[in-house]
Every structure is written in C-alpha cells, then in structure tokens.
Design a protein around this nucleic acid. Structure first.
Length: 897
RNA sequence: GGGCCGAUAGUUUAGGGGUAUAGCGCCACGUUCGCAACGUGGAAGUCGAGGGUUCAAUUCCCUCUCGGUCCA
C-alpha cells in the first residue's frame, strides 16, 4: 500500500473523501491539472493547472496578495487570535528535544507533541480539544538547501491545529472552513487565490485523506484527516480519528511580506543588521527576480547547483553580482537560521556532540563557522544570539531563561571546532603518501579526519567507493541482545506491594514455577528497572538471585529448590540491601538537580544505576567535571539532605503531569503508561519515576561523590555513595590519605638516602681514582679495588669484586680511570640480590684492540648470563655467583694475553 | 561500549633493551656602575603505578590509573 494507490482510490470518490461544506457553500470547482492531472479545488474559473504547475507560482515575491504585512511574530499573533476566537485552546510549544518518544530525537511536527507511547502502541493524548500550537520543529534532511532556496529552514514553526471529533472537537468540514477563513478573513487573501489540492497521508498503520492549501504556488498548510486503519482493500474507521493540520508560520509571514526570501521576514532585525555589517546591497533589484526563479526551479531540478545555475542564467546575473550579493546573502541566511535552531535545541537541553541528534547540532555549528571563514565575515555570535532571542521571546518567552547557557555552549563548541580543525590540518600535513582505504579508515576512526576533508585538501582525488561499506562492516554490532521467551501466557499481572504498604515480610501464592523461576500473585520484591537493581531476599527459604519484569509480570529467579505452583510461600525482603538501594535512588534525584543548578540548564539525566553500596548517574554536560564542580555539586546535594525535604510520591495522568510540571519529569526516559508516578523533592526535583525512595531527604544522611568520568562526548558519569556507604567512604579516604602520607615520607627518605650515596660516590671516586692511578708497577689493592699495572704501552687492568659498591660507583670510577689512562680497562663485579652483575669500561686507546663489549660477553657467559655494549662501555651479568673468581681470571687473560 | 594516542627535570620535550636528551626557567661565577644580553659552570629525573620477560626494562609484554582523541 503506497500513497499513490491510496490517492487514486480516494480521488476516485471525491464526494466521500474530499468534498466539504465549504466547497459547496462557496461554489468551489473540482478540476484535474492539465499538466499532471492531479485533482484540486478552486474558485478561480480560469485556473487549469495545480499549484505546482501554475503560472502564478511565487508571484507573491515582490507583490504580496494581502493588504496587510505581518512578520513572523505578528503572523503567529494573527493565527493564534483567530483560532482562540474560534474556541481553540492555545498551547505553548513543546520542547524540540522529543523526550516523550524514544524513536525520535527531535520534535519534527506539531502532532508529535501529542503522541505518547502506550506499551508498544502510539496513542494520542491532547491537553485540550481543539487546540492550536506554535511548534518549533527541527529538520535536518535538507541542510544544503538552507539559505539558498529562500524557503528551507533547519527549524521552523509549525502551526499545529489539532482536533478530535467529539463534543468539543470537529471534523473535516469545520477544519477546512476555519483554515479558509483564517486565510481570507484574518490575512485578507482573496478567495480566488486559494487552491485546495487532494492528497493522502499514510504512516504508522493508519491513513487518511488530506487537503493541502496553496496560495500562488506556495503550500501554506496541509490538513490531514487521520481516519482509517487496515489494508486498502479492507479498512475501517479508527476509534480515535484526529485532525493534524500543520502549516508553516514562516510561509504565512512570507506571503504577506512578499520579500525575496522567507528569511528576510522571519528572523527579525538580525537579518538587516548582518547584511549591513557585510556591506551588501539589500535593496538590489536583482533579488526579487533571482529568488523567484530559484523558487520556481526548485521543483524542476533535483540538483541544487543546477537550480542555482539555471536561475543565474535566466535572470542574467553576472559573476560579480553573484559573488558580491547572492553568495554572501546565502551565507548570512544560513548563519542566522542555524543559530536560531541552536538556540531552540540548546535551550531545550540538547548538546552538540558526536552522537545521535547532538551530531546534527555540531554539524550546524561547524557550518556556521566555516561559512563565516569562507566568506570572510566576522560576526559576533553572542550578539546574533542576543538579537535573535530578543526577537523570538515575543513568541517564546521561555528562551530568555537560557540566553546565557546558549551562549556558553556555543562558545565552547566553537572553540572545540577551532582546535579540531588545527588538529586535522596537522595530521594531514604529516601524511606523505596518498592513503589507502585502510589508512582512510584509520584516519577517520582514530583521528576523526573525514575523507571529505581530505578530498577538500586535495590529499586524495576521490573517496574510494569501498570506504563506507568497509566502515559499516567495522561497526556492525557484535553483540546481539538475546531475547528470552518465558512461558508466561495467561498469568495475571503481579500485584506490586512496594508501591503501597511495602512490607518486608509477606506471604504470596505461587502462580507459576519453572526452571529457576517463580511467579507470585503479589510481591514486595522490587524488580530490576529504571536503573534500579533488584531486591534480594528469600522465597520459602531459597535465595533470590534476580528479579525481572516482563510486561506487568514479575519473575523471581531463585537458587535452589523452587516451590510448587499453588503453594503459599513466605517471603522475606533483604532489608539492608533495599535500604541501601533506596537511599541511592533518592540520592540520584538529589544529585541530578544539584548538578543542574551548579552546571547549567543543559544538564539532564542520561542514564542511572543504583546498587546497594554504590550508584552512578550519567548527566549531559559538555566537559569533564573539575574538582570544583564536584565539590559544589556535592555541597548542594548535602545541603538538600540537611534541609530535610519530604519526598512526595503522587500518581497523575500523564498529560496532566506534563502540563503541570513540564518535560523535566522525563529524566529517566519515556514512560510507557498513561498514569505516571511523580516523585518530587520539594520543587527542586520532580521526576516521573517507578523506583523506591526514602520519605525525607534527611534519610539519605550523606552523599559523597567518589569519582567522575567523561564517558562519551556530552555525557559525564558521576559515581557516588550515600548513607552508611558515604560515611565508610569518607573514613576510608581518610585512611588512604594517611597511608599515602606515610608512603610519601618513606619515599622522601629513600630519596635522601640515594642522594647521600651519590654524594659519597662523587666525593670518593676522585680520591680512589687518584690513588689507583698513582700505582706504578705490579699489583696494588686499595679499598678492595685491585689494579695491575703492566709495562707502559700495554693494557692496564683494574678490577673490583667487592659487594660494597653498586653500579653507579663502578660506572663512575670506570669513567674517571679510563679518561685519565687511555690504556686502562676497568672491570667491576658486584652481587645484586640473587644475581651477579658486571660492568666493564675501556680507555680510548685500548678499546680499539680489546672491546669492553667482548669482555663482558665472555665474562657473562662464565657467570651463566649474557651481556653487551659498546667497545668503550659494556655491562652484563649472570646467576652463578660461585664463578666470580673464574670470571676475573678470564677477563685478565683476555686483556693481558 | 569499542578503537587510537599519550604520561620522561619546575616546564616544553628527544630518545629508545646496555651511562637519560635538549631548549626555556632556576642557581653560581665572569663581563657590567646596574640591568638586559652574552660567556662558563652547576643543581634539578625511582622515565605514570603494579606485575612479567631479561644478566639488564624508562624502552618489550600484560594489568591498572590519569589525560587526550575518534567512532557507535
């Protein structure tokens, strides 16, 4: 079933699917486009083509069809007042970070606001009916169009008009009526200008007809009537029909203003300001024809560069005009658009990073910076943010609160980009040959140097076609989560006692037992979930190893004999463990809010883990935490404990909770049930949470952060302990520091000793050396060092086998002796633990005949080891201490021969 | 979660199984009325921690810690 088939079927029966009262009342005619045969409804008897092929396409540029001019802010005021006047509730926009659906990172349409997960199904939950909402939506599909086409944005405001047909809401007739009146009455567009095009919508298993409305080729809105489910041959009406009318606010503004691009009338005063700063002639007469051509050509060619080329050709623009006016304008539009998106995204808690949706934000920031570089424009980003927020807060007052946070994040990210660019340049400059595919992958994986960048820098001429396939092979998920299928059919939901009286001992009936698993009719054991580890304890005397939840059935895994089905068993919860986990869970909430207040509004829980004796909380944050940050967070957390704030637990309808507390409640992720359990610590922290909590923050006693770590870009892990664990940790830490102090002292002493020894060696060597060198003939021993002087001109041999000296001494003495006597060979042997070591030094002259290296090799062999070195200096050793005498003899014979 | 890189004197760093490099900084002396500059000399290192291999490890291997970075 595809859209085309549905459209064919629906358009074959227009009376049933498309005809609405308005068309009857006003006398709309249904026509088929003479170009594409698409069906549309119009009051204009001359109109023979659908809006896509119409001759008046984009003729509003430079000549708007309305008497009044409304900019972005004013357009929303008009829309809002119209719908409110017509009994709609105006709802504030929802966050652009879509935390209530885990299949979406960003909010991409107004209808998404009201979609909730229920088990595995998506359902609609409306806070009012009917309603209208100015929903900021983020879309990153056509980023390359932004700034160029005149109408593509990375974020835009979707006017959402939503209704459920019941006592309060309405269906098709009323919807189209309202939309028509909005255009004609509120915006003053002539009735003949408005064209409705037949279309369909399909997705998520349901489908329905839709009417797109156009004015002069510009699609202003699309009213989707989600009505059916099933197959095209056999479908039935949904229990919950809804109207999803989405319209682009930017386009409403554009059509009333008739500016060359939608950008010119939607960003407020910033556009003019930047154009002025860049010194572009904004009133140039080329703009209107050029952008009209662009808009028209966009439908004709797929390739944007082709669209651009053609528009330039048709309007006869010179290269000079392109370079001086068009290109910088495109850059400015892009910069403003991207910053506006970043303002919304960062305000709502997203951070630029290398993962998921955050990556889109990073890409956008990099596009902003590289566009400025390319066009040699130097804008003050902080100023752009300020001016934009000043303008946007007319519609979205909440942006004021995060003004400084947005600036901070953008400045951090800009700095990172600068250093990463430098790093890439450095790496690229080091490349000395054309890299192979394998090298490209290494460069990409370990250094983040993209092949695109290499191509741009002309290091490679083409990106090898195998690059991406090899890369994806590399990242093919290694582990597959194994799905366990337990025989649980027909078993009723387990009654969860820990949400009520929460007894530590109770009796329950065994509903099912198999392998090591037991299912009870009720349980006070907490099952693994929400990052909270399961309880331990005993079921009829048998140890529990794990507890998991399958749907609403709790399954206990036990060690030992399992009870029989039908038995009533006595159960005991491990209280100490539960208390520990409970304290840690409440602590998680406390640290989360503390971190947010210390670090900034962008801090959200990323994930969490609570065990009996430790816990961790991962939060979204742009940098690693400093010691100061940690201390501040810890202090803030402990002050919450000191204040002894009651921890309140209430159940709410999901929609009510969202309206009452906002989306901060979804710290732990999507809640798949209609009723949410709200855990609040005063008004400091309010979260939807299914875990166990203490009654008062004072019960936590103390929180101690044990460690923090950056676990990925944009996520910081805080590991901590609370209650007795915290006390123990503090005690242990104190002991550790004491031990460390002791160790340090010991080290200091050793160091002193070493220095002393060195001093002695340094002072004694010259004295000993002097005496040794003074020996003229025969054999002399001084301080256990023996020197044998052979007739002059031949080798002199000096050796020591005393264990009173160490390597530093032998090396020092050898060096001094050989420097003074070029015929001297010095040989030092000494025991070191179980081993014996040998050091040989040879004077300049003698070393040419008798290499120290050779001597050492020979001696070491005798000693049962090995050695080596240069002709002048060598060292070696062995294990056989008893061969010491032999070794000396050998050395002597080698030297004297 | 996975990969890659790094940790050497106060600092920035070279090196690499066999005496640990150099610049800056520091100290002393010389030159100078004095400073800077210059010249000469010097002090300063358990080469991140712990194991292993080896006669010998800062170097090779393993584990860990910390830091950086990239990918998912």
């Amino acid at each position: 079933m595809n859209k085309k088939e549905i459209l064919e079927k629906f358009s074959a029966d227009p009376e049933r699917y498309y005809n609405v009262n308005l068309f009857e009342d006003q006398g709309f005619e249904r026509r088929s486009c003479i170009v594409c045969s698409r069906f549309f409804w119009t009051l204009d008897s001359e109109r023979t083509k659908c809006p896509d092929h119409s001759d008046d396409t984009y003729s509003f540029i430079g000549n708007p069809p309305t008497a009044k001019r409304f900019d972005y802010t004013q357009s929303w005021k008009e829309v809002e007042s119209f719908f409110v006047k017509n009994n709609h509730t105006s709802i504030n926009r929802y966050p652009v970070v879509c935390r209530w659906r885990d299949d979406l990172y960003f909010t991409i349409a107004s209808i998404v606001d009201f979609q909730r997960v229920m088990g595995s199904k998506v359902v609609f939950e409306f806070p009012a009916n009917p309603l209208v909402v100015p929903q900021t939506c983020l879309r990153f599909k056509d980023l390359e169009n932004v700034g160029v086409t005149g109408r593509h944005f990375s974020s835009f405001c979707m006017i959402g008009q939503h209704s459920i047909p019941n006592d309060n809401g309405y269906w098709k007739d009323e919807c189209v009526n309202l939309d028509f009146n909005l255009l004609t009455e509120q915006f003053g567009i002539a009735k003949k200008e408005i064209t409705f095009v037949e279309d369909v919508w399909e997705g998520g298993g349901s489908f329905g007809s839709s009417l797109e409305y156009f004015v002069r080729g510009l699609e202003l809105g699309n009213a989707v009537f989600t009505e059916f489910q099933g197959d095209l041959s056999d479908y039935k009406t949904l229990d919950q029909r809804i109207i999803d009318m989405g319209a682009g606010l930017e386009r409403f503004a554009w059509i009333t203003m008739g500016t060359p691009t939608a950008y010119d009338c939607c960003f407020g005063p910033i556009t003019e300001k930047l154009i002025g700063q860049a010194g572009i002639d904004a009133n140039s007469s080329v703009l209107t024809p050029y952008f009209t051509e662009i808009a028209k050509n966009l439908e004709l060619y797929e390739d944007l560069t082709q669209v651009r080329k053609n528009a330039i050709k048709t309007t006869g623009l010179t290269d000079e005009q392109i370079n001086r006016i068009i290109t910088p304008l495109e850059g400015i539009y892009l910069i403003i658009d991207h910053i506006r998106t970043l303002i919304f995204a960062i305000s709502d808690g997203a951070l630029p990073s290398n993962v998921g949706g955050g990556y889109n934000l990073r890409i956008m920031l990099r596009r902003i910076v590289s566009t400025m570089d390319r066009l040699k424009l130097k804008f003050d980003l902080d100023e752009i943010i300020d001016i934009q927020i000043d303008y946007l807060k007319n519609t979205y007052p909440e942006l004021e609160k995060t003004r400084n946070d947005v600036k901070e994040i953008i400045s951090i990210e800009t700095g990172r980009y600068d250093s990463s660019k430098q790093r890439m340049q450095k790496i690229v400059s080091k490349l000395n040959k054309e890299p192979k595919v394998e090298d490209l992958i290494t460069l990409y994986e370990s250094d983040g140097v993209t092949p695109e960048y290499l191509k741009e820098m002309k290091v490679i001429s083409e990106i090898p076609s195998s690059f991406y396939s090899k890369l994806s092979d590399l990242h093919q998920s290694k582990k597959q989560k194994e799905q366990v299928n337990l025989p649980l059919e027909g078993i009723p939901d387990t009654e969860l006692l820990f949400y009520n009286e929460d007894p530590r001992e109770f009796n329950a009936k065994v509903l099912k037992s198999f392998e090591n698993f037991v299912v009870l009719d009720k349980t006070a054991f907490y099952a693994r979930g929400g990052g909270q580890e399961p309880d331990h304890g005993k079921i009829s005397g048998q140890e529990i190893v794990d507890i998991t939840k399958h749907g609403n059935i709790v399954v206990h895994e036990i060690k030992g004999e399992i009870p029989k089905e039908g038995d009533v068993v006595s159960c005991v919860v491990d209280t100490k463990r539960r208390d520990g986990i409970t304290k840690n869970h409440t602590s998680t909430h406390i640290i989360n809010t503390s971190a947010r207040s210390v670090l900034g509004s962008w801090v959200w829980q990323h994930s969490a883990f609570k065990e009996e004796d430790h816990a961790r909380l991962d939060i979204t944050h742009h940098s690693a935490l400093t010691d100061e940050d940690v201390t501040k967070i810890e202090d803030a957390a402990n002050s919450i404990i000191e204040k002894a704030i009651p921890v309140k637990i209430e159940n709410f309808d999901r929609g009510t909770a969202e309206q009452k507390y906002g989306f901060r409640i979804y710290q732990g992720g999507v809640v798949p049930v209609k009723s949410v359990r709200i855990v609040s610590i005063g008004d400091l922290d309010i979260e939807a949470c299914g875990g166990t909590h203490v009654a008062n923050t004072s019960d936590v006693e103390q929180i101690k952060i044990t460690r923090t770590k950056r676990i990925q870009d944009g996520v910081v892990r805080i590991e901590f302990v609370s209650g007795d664990g915290a006390k123990e940790f503090v005690k242990k830490k104190q002991q550790d520091s004491e031990n460390k102090e002791k160790e340090e002292k010991l080290r200091e002493q050793e160091k002193e000793k070493r220095l002393e020894q060195r001093q002695i060696v340094k002072e004694r060597i010259p004295v000993i050396a002097k005496s040794l060198l003074e020996c003229k003939q025969g054999r002399t021993t001084i301080d256990e060092i023996t020197v044998e002087v052979i007739e002059s001109g031949k080798a002199n041999f000096c050796y020591s086998d005393s264990n009173n000296y160490d390597d530093v001494f032998h090396i020092g003495l050898g060096e001094v002796l050989c420097k003074s006597d070029p015929n001297m060979i010095y040989c030092g042997l000494f025991e070191q633990g179980e081993k014996i070591r040998v050091i040989v030094y040879a004077g300049d002259d003698i070393s040419k005949e008798k290499s120290a290296g050779d001597i050492v090799k020979s001696i070491s062999q005798i000693l049962g080891g090995a050695g080596g070195g240069s002709p002048k200096f060598a060292q070696g050793g062995g294990t056989d201490k008893s061969k010491k005498e032999d070794a000396i003899k050998n050395a002597k014979s080698m030297i004297i021969e």
